[in-house]
Computed example of a mutant assay.
Amino acid sequence: MTGPSHDTAPPALPAAPTTPAPPTARNVPALLLALRRTEFTGSVTVSSTPGGTIHLEQGLVSAVETPGAPTAETLLLKSRRVGEQEWASAETAASTGRPADAPPARGGDLGTALVAQGTISAAELEAVCVAAAFDGAFALALSPPGSWETAEAAPPARIALRPGIEPERLFEETARRTALLTRLWGPPGELARIRIRPATRPESGAPRIPVRHREILAAATGRRTARDLAFTLGRGVFAVLVDIVRMDARHLLHREPAHPAPPAPSVAPRIPTNEPPPASTGPLPRRVRSGPGARGPGSPSGPSGPGHLPARPERAAAPDGPPNTHRAEHTARTETTEQSEKSTP
């Protein structure tokens, strides 16, 4: 009877599907171009200030969502192109017939529902989605990006542009807007951080103020930036910045000074309040000559207290030889000196 053979290999398991690693790139534009070549569908999350998410379908940009600019949903609701009741009806229609545990479909269902119920035309919805994507990309470019991360299972955009925008077209439009504002005013990033309020005395004899400028004047409270005004009015950040530059040239606005940064906390050691401050250092003490009549710190009339040096002690006798020998040498030198002084004419 023979035992089971151990040379037979177990049957190979089917290989698990692998997700291709995202391409390496030196910046976000290079990454989007690489994802376009691979027809990537998912999202790219950019970590910066304020950061945001770029949605891609087959490598095309379908939406750009960032806290720095209004999305297509915000533009439709804040501008009152779509009412709240119509929006709620479209949300219900977009979710009807989908199982509760099913993952959300790729973006665009809500926009399709809005068009199907006649709330907005397909051409107008496409124009709003394109404007929101361009404005979101411009808002991302106002600050240097940090890191980024790609994800295929990211939640889709609620309103997506189909077909999407080529990444190259997105870069060209962002560069054009940045160059325009730089030529008209200066760095767009600094302009976007300015808080404005209406001028006290507008330019005398100015022509009629356009409606969009009057809306900015009504919403400018001195605490709002261009980004705040864009969300309040339902407009793009770039369009608001262009209007601010033109209104500033007509002296219709007043720029609020930037708030100074809070001072850094002190790292110096603190002196307890219950202890007296240290005594101030005065001039150096005068040196007291030593001698038989010198007054030291122990004498009744001598200086005693802080700031006075003690009297210098007398020089000790030479350790070599007995004391009598040292005294005889001193007497001989004294007699020799007296004789030389007497012999001098």
Rank of each mutant, 00 (worst) to 15 (best):
A179H: 12
R197S: 03
R176G: 00
T178S: 04
R208K: 12
R195I: 10
R235L: 10
E152V: 15
P187R: 10
W185G: 00
P167C: 03
P188R: 02
F231H: 05
A151N: 04
A199V: 09
A157E: 07
P207M: 11
A220M: 08
P210R: 03
E166R: 04
A179C: 07
W185M: 11
R224K: 12
A218C: 01
V211A: 10
L161R: 00
P144E: 15
G222V: 10
A199D: 07
P210G: 03
H213Q: 15
L181F: 04
S204G: 12
H213T: 14
E203I: 15
I196P: 01
A160V: 06
A199T: 09
R193G: 05
P156Q: 03
L184D: 11
R158I: 12
R223G: 05
A157V: 02
P202M: 06
A175R: 05
L181G: 01
S147H: 07
E152Y: 09
P156T: 06
E149V: 15
H213K: 13
A153I: 14
R169F: 12
A154D: 09
R208M: 14
I209Y: 02
P187D: 15
R169K: 13
R193N: 08
I159A: 00
A192M: 09
G146A: 05
R227C: 07
L180Q: 13
S147G: 09
P188F: 04
V237P: 01
W185F: 13
A219G: 01
L161V: 03
A157Y: 01
T182H: 09
D228V: 12
P167I: 01
A151P: 03
S143W: 10
I194W: 04
V237I: 14
A218P: 02
G146D: 10
P198Y: 00
T150G: 00
R214W: 05
R212E: 15
A220I: 07
R201A: 09
E172P: 05
G236T: 09
R193D: 14
A157S: 06
G234N: 02
P167L: 04
I209R: 07
V240A: 00
A157D: 03
W148F: 10
A219C: 04
S147V: 14
W148L: 14
G189W: 11
R193Y: 07
L191E: 10
P163E: 02
A160I: 06
A179P: 07
E190T: 14
G205L: 06
G222Q: 05
R227E: 11
I216V: 08
R214T: 12
G164C: 01
L161T: 02
L229S: 01
I165M: 08
A153M: 12
R223Y: 08
E173S: 08
F231S: 02
D228S: 04
V237K: 00
R197A: 06
P202E: 06
R201H: 14
R197D: 09
G205W: 03
R169V: 15
R183Q: 11
G189L: 12
W148Y: 09
S143Y: 12
V237T: 07
A220V: 08
T150S: 04
P188Q: 03
S143R: 05
G234D: 05
R224T: 14
G234I: 10
A153C: 08
R158G: 06
E166W: 11
L184I: 13
A226C: 13
L161P: 01
R158D: 13
L229M: 11
L184Y: 09
R183H: 11
G146L: 10
E190Y: 12
E172C: 05
R235V: 11
T232S: 09
